[in-house]
């Protein structure tokens, strides 16, 4: 029998290979789709379903094991380290796109409007920001302002950080109701955020002429906010799982790795948004 003092080492694992197959089929399908092959979307769907089945199966297993007390302190530390370094890798991933924004705004766009490039290639081009480049790629567009929906979204995400922490306090103090309410509020605010962002995108595409194809401004704008929005969705899904588990009575004040991981992730997504608000919208 397992005891709390032993480091739990599972003996075999069937979900990893299933999940890998799902992801691979999904990506191969996407590649086929991009190449214009008709089987692409079917493959993507099949891959996605396999992947979701894996997620449900694997997380259920982990939850069961955790609740039956199979994870000792050492296992908890390994999981926390895992999550921490995963978030670190995500920071590196976002770093690329922030770096791209910095480089294009401060280096490549000014270069395009000066020196030999201007004299020989693009004499009519005035380098400014926002820009879609000397080729006017994607045609006329309006840049996205900061003080409408984006500002509302900033407030939403910031308050969701607060509700998340409030839920955590509830969990620590064994106030289950506070835990559940706090989580539900966090998920709700997250979804609201995604909804507003969808509205923002809709407006950009239909009324402002701003698309992914609007030169470098459109590219960086949609890439950064898009990947962030995707992360909000993922974070909201993780939090919903945690909410669901909390409702089933899972987690104890001294044992709630899944909650912590979800909260860390959520705060990370929050901080990325602040960066976006400042560097993409404000400046």
């Amino acid at each position: 029998m397992s005891t709390n003092t032993a480091y739990y080492i599972p003996h075999k694992a069937t979900w990893p290979v299933i999940g890998t197959a799902g992801l691979m089929i999904m990506l191969a399908g996407f590649a086929n789709y991009l190449n214009g092959s008709s089987i692409g979307s079917t493959m993507m769907l099949i891959g996605l379903i396999i992947f979701i089945v894996m997620l449900v199966g694997w997380f259920t297993l982990q939850a069961k094991e955790s609740e039956s007390g199979m994870y000792n302190h050492g296992v908890g530390i390994s999981y926390r380290m895992g999550m921490m370094w995963f978030i670190f890798s995500e920071i590196a991933f976002f770093g690329v796109f922030f770096g791209t924004l910095w480089y294009t705004r401060n280096l490549s766009v000014p270069w395009l409007g000066s020196g030999a490039t201007k004299e020989i290639l693009y004499s009519a081009y005035q380098s400014t920001w926002p820009t879609n480049g000397p080729g006017n790629v994607g045609g006329h567009f309006e840049p996205m302002g900061a003080w409408g929906l984006p500002f509302v979204n900033t407030l939403l995400l910031l308050s969701s950080g607060v509700t998340c922490t409030w839920a955590h306090h509830g969990l620590l103090a064994n106030h289950r109701e506070q835990l559940i309410k706090g989580l539900a509020a966090t998920v709700f605010l997250g979804l609201l955020f995604v909804g507003f962002q969808a509205m923002e995108y809709h407006e950009a595409y239909t009324e402002m002429g701003l698309t992914l194809g609007s030169g470098i401004y459109g590219s960086t704008f949609f890439m950064l906010t898009g990947f962030h929005g995707f992360h909000v969705c993922v974070g909201a899904i993780i939090l919903s799982v945690v909410l669901f588990r909390s409702a089933k009575g899972h987690f104890k004040p001294e044992n709630h790795f899944a909650f912590e991981a979800a909260a860390w992730y959520w705060h990370f997504v929050d901080v990325v948004w602040l960066g976006l608000f400042i560097f993409v919208y404000l400046m």
């Binding site: 480049g133 992914l212 470098i216």
Partner: peptide
Amino acid sequence: LTDKFFHTSFFNAAGGGDPVL
């Protein structure tokens, strides 16, 4: 990928990007 298939201009000078990036 997005430059190739989704019309972005990260590495396209005409759109304000830069292959050197």
